[in-house]
Design a protein around this nucleic acid. Structure first.
Length: 636
DNA sequence: ACGGCTGAAACC
DNA sequence: TGGTTTCAG
């Protein structure tokens, strides 16, 4: 359900930039022969010619649509070029398009706050830049840029045939305009400039919408395509929305939009205006009602987030019909492939952007052998993410088994899996100055060395594959890791990540967030007597097993030693995949007593400082003896 | 037997 | 919270 946000009182200048048939453009840049030709990008050519995921404008002219099959597209447009998405590890590999998207983001982020909305879309908050331009009177922009801006489409600006560009020029610099329109005009010029730069530096064209909020900018960015931009002056909003079909509005393309049509007879956004809150009251919750009310009036307070990188990484594959997986071995095989890709991607994120993912989640779709249409769904499962391909594979398989067990409800029926996916989420920036901790996170085995002292290189260390105490590696021993230049899987240029990290760090401080939620790898530094703690699952909280002399088996023992919580202690712990028979306790990396830090090698001490802080974890409140020096009760 | 693969966000 | 659901492209 959409949620309305408070509207900033000051007028903003927001742009939404959308790449034109992006995957096609990426392929056309790789293979110039495809330029200007009817072209589509397709994945999996073996079944009915594969599914189209992007279509060039030439091909659209022939009636080729996204979500056609390759065969169908050939029928409609025999001359079409079908380019296949690269395949790696038996699945579509979108990295080529991801990094192309990053090229664009790096350019678009130069003029103001920039939010990566998807692989090929961004939002920009150009308010400051527009105000700045407005201070120079008259605004100075190169004629080349102004010419481009003059090609804008201005919503509500009536133009006699052939006079459009002249009228737009006039609109862009009319001196009697109100302040808001002047800001928008500057926004249009800035966006035109950015689009020219994108074209020059990447060879990609894009379209854009410029308005006072995200909703309106997004709404019009696709209105004139390709390679055009559209401006929404305040004065044209009412008329524009009045005739806009409800389904065109973002968030109303699905069930909510259908409900508005079917249940209330609302056909356009304008129709919504005649509905008072009372009438909507019977149908929808308060959030939806106020969102609808504001939306109908073109009001949207949603801010542009300062974020150039994705919040999660996922890889998945479907196994339709006869391809469904029916035994653990085949599931394991595919899961291994997916995890391999995921591991590679988060490793790139780590190396390039200094970000660590905390949670691994497994999703699957499944059906049971006999029950034709069991409504029962395969449950998602998650656990703390441990770096290293082998570990991810191992953990993912455990998550699968756990989910399968729950799915089957101890029935003895056969099953089949029709889709699998693994996702890495809860990604945090690593605070500057703590980067050497990364040496203890396993990197790609093919890693080549980077000799930069404070670099993020992650050396291969086979011992890290074992859940045992690992001695700190000295700087000299530091193996080189993958060079950043060779890392073509990377998500963004370091120029981006530096700027982004800076922004994130400021955000973190202002919000008083903890610097970093620790990665479980830190546990490797913590030993208790001759015991070793093994990281196990659960995101945020960690479930750890204890091995060594004097094993503790039951909750009461755990209590006695003030282990924060026994695994079954929390009502949702049962959803974790736990190794049967092992002793598991849950605690949080943030629960570590600062005293422990003193026992650690100085190098590590410095690293951990700032990571160790009181935990919010409710299950850590009990007080105990021995182990409390390691895992003190929370004060709070 | 399918649009496949991604991603974000709100709800409970 | 983690897990589910919705939406989008």
């Amino acid at each position: 359900m959409p949620v309305a946000r408070p509207e900033p009182q000051e007028p903003r200048v927001i742009a939404h930039v959308d790449m034109d048939c992006f995957y096609v453009q990426v392929e056309q840049r790789r293979n110039l022969v495809l330029r200007g030709q009817p072209t589509a990008v397709v994945q999996y050519n073996d079944w009915k010619g594969g599914g189209l995921i992007a279509v060039s404008y030439e091909a659209r002219g022939f009636g080729v649509k996204r979500s056609m099959r390759g065969d169908e597209a050939k029928r409609v447009c025999p001359g079409i070029n079908l380019v296949q998405v690269p395949v790696a590890r038996g699945k579509a590999d979108l990295n080529l398009y991801r990094s192309a998207g990053s090229e664009v983001v790096a350019i678009l982020a130069s003029k103001g706050k920039c939010e990566r909305a998807s692989i090929d879309e961004v939002y920009l908050d150009l308010t400051d830049a527009a105000k700045e331009m407005l201070l120079q009177a008259p605004p100075d922009s190169p004629e080349e840029i102004f010419m481009e801006a003059a090609k804008s489409n201005i919503l509500g600006l009536l133009s006699d045939a052939g006079e459009k560009e002249k009228n737009v020029r006039a609109w862009l610099c009319r001196s009697d305009a109100d302040y808001q329109d002047k800001l928008l005009a500057c926004g249009a010029i800035i966006v035109a400039q950015l689009r020219v730069r994108v074209l020059e530096e990447t060879q990609f064209t894009c379209s854009a919408g410029i308005a006072h909020n995200k909703m309106l900018a997004k709404l019009v960015s696709g209105m004139h395509k390709p390679a055009q931009q559209t401006v929404v002056p305040s004065s044209s909003v009412q008329d524009f929305l009045a005739s806009l079909p409800v389904k065109k509005m973002k968030q109303l393309g699905g069930k909510l939009g259908s409900s508005l049509q079917d249940d209330l007879g609302v056909e356009t956004i304008g129709d919504l205006l005649s509905f008072t809150e009372d009438k909507l009251q019977e149908q929808y919750g308060v959030n939806t009602r106020t969102w609808l009310w504001k939306t109908a009036r073109g009001i949207s307070g949603e801010e542009v987030e300062d974020r150039l990188l994705p919040k999660s990484h996922g890889c998945g594959k479907t196994f339709p019909g006869p391809r469904a997986l029916k035994n653990s071995a085949s599931v394991k095989g595919w899961l291994d492939q997916l995890c391999e890709e995921l591991s590679e991607r988060i490793q790139s994120d780590l190396n390039q952007n200094k970000r660590i993912a905390q949670t691994l989640t497994l999703h699957a779709r499944a059906s049971k052998e006999n029950e034709r249409d069991s409504t029962k769904k395969f449950p998602s499962k998650s656990c703390p993410l441990r770096y290293g391909t082998g570990k991810i594979q191992e953990d993912a398989m455990k998550l699968f088994e756990s989910g399968l067990h729950e799915f089957l409800e101890s029935q003895n029926t056969g099953w089949s899996i029709t889709s699998l996916s693994v996702t890495a989420s809860k990604i945090f920036d690593i605070p500057s100055g703590t980067s050497s901790i990364l040496r203890y996170i396993k990197g790609p085995s093919s890693a080549a060395p980077p000799a930069i002292p404070d670099s993020l290189s992650v050396p291969e260390d086979p011992s890290l594959d074992n859940d045992v105490f690992v001695k700190p590696i000295h700087e000299e021993q530091c193996q080189p890791s993958m060079s950043e230049k060779e890392d073509n899987n990377a998500h963004s240029a370091s120029a981006i990540s530096a700027k982004q990290r800076q922004a994130n760090e400021e955000k973190r401080i202002s919000k008083k967030l903890p610097e970093v939620k620790g990665t479980s790898s830190i546990l490797k530094f913590l030993s208790w007597g001759q015991s070793t703690f093994h990281e196990k699952r659960k995101s945020d909280g960690l479930i750890c097993s204890h091995q060594g002399p004097g094993s503790y088996s039951e909750a009461n023992k755990a209590e006695e030693h003030n282990v924060p919580a026994e695994a079954g202690d929390r009502n949702n712990t049962s959803s974790c995949a736990e190794p049967s028979g092992s002793n598991t306790w849950m605690f949080n990396i943030q629960d570590i007593d600062p005293a422990v830090v003193e026992e650690l090698p100085p190098e590590i001490q410095r690293e951990i400082q700032g990571w160790v802080r009181p935990s919010k974890h409710p299950s850590t409140k009990r007080r105990g003896s021995t182990i409390s020096s390691y895992f003190p009760p929370t004060r709070s």
